[in-house]
């Protein structure tokens, strides 16, 4: 079985992000970048499936800048076999990314496509769903457990209010939630070996998809500073403040 795993380069989750001084975007100069944590979980799952003998080839795919090769290398160090970068220096929207991934999937014909449920930069939570629709295959989002029978995959999904278990035919698109697994640390020898694994670089213009922007960012700003709380004397005062000041009840 062949698995494709999508990986995205994002600001590291430990970084406290700030808007640029002109408010046009998030400041990315000299900011530590990493693989999106949910993508890392997806890679880990693919590697575990390979270790179990379910998957025999893992292709890590990224759509992004030249530097996204670093995140593909991370996936290769974790255990992916080869990488593909659809290169663009523009920031693509989820639909454009999904279309690029669809083109790659058409060529690679994977049995399984694994993605993170969302990236921690845009928090759009759309690419996996759009990709499944474009490919006209089943989708299982927010996966917390995956198991396989002959030609089907059973996925437990984290949904509001509990867990939902569904069965899909393959090929299928699955997006990982936080509790699917805990990614390993890539071993140091594997980090070195990853350098020898191949990465194909394809220019986004050669792939033949419309990547025009449909959304315009007007302004990026920090959330307002949180104000200090107050202590109330009794319940009736609390109810009064909630109703008349906070206006939440």
């Amino acid at each position: 079985m062949k698995a494709i795993v999508a990986v995205k380069r994002v600001v590291d989750y430990n970084v406290k992000v700030r808007p640029k001084s002109d408010g046009s975007a998030v400041e990315l100069t000299n900011v530590k970048m990493s693989i999106n944590p949910f993508c890392e979980i997806a890679v880990e799952e693919a590697v575990r499936l390979k270790e179990k003998g379910v998957v025999n080839e893992i292709v890590a795919v990224s759509v992004g800048s030249t530097q996204s090769q670093e995140q593909i290398r991370t996936a290769l160090a974790l255990g992916a076999d080869r990488g593909i970068l659809v290169q663009t220096e523009d920031e693509l929207e989820p639909l454009a990314v999904a279309k690029c991934l669809e083109k790659i999937c058409n060529k690679e014909e994977p049995d399984l496509v694994l993605l993170g449920k969302q990236a921690i930069d845009g928090d759009n939570n759309q690419t996996g769903q759009m990709l499944a629709a474009l490919m006209e295959v089943g989708q299982a989002t927010f996966a917390s457990e995956i198991s396989f029978t002959d030609d089907a995959v059973t996925v437990t999904r984290e949904v509001d209010g509990g867990l939902q278990t569904i069965k899909l035919k393959m090929p299928a698109v699955i997006t990982s939630d936080l509790r699917l697994n805990e990614p390993r640390y890539a071993s140091l020898p594997n980090i070195m070996k990853a350098k020898k694994k191949p990465i194909d670089v394809i220019d986004v213009n050669e792939i033949g998809v419309n990547v025009d922007k449909r959304v315009q960012t007007i302004e990026v700003q920090l959330p307002p500073e949180r104000e200090a709380g107050i202590k109330v004397e009794n319940v009736s005062e609390l109810v009064d403040k909630l109703r008349n000041e906070a206006k939440v009840i």
């Binding site: 640390y185 140091l188 070195m192 350098k195």
Partner: peptide, 21 residues
Amino acid sequence: SLDQDTLHQLLDTIRRFVRNR
């Protein structure tokens, strides 16, 4: 000697392991 990308990734992994584990 390692290329800078590989060394960077190696050190980053060790840093994460040291701080998180």
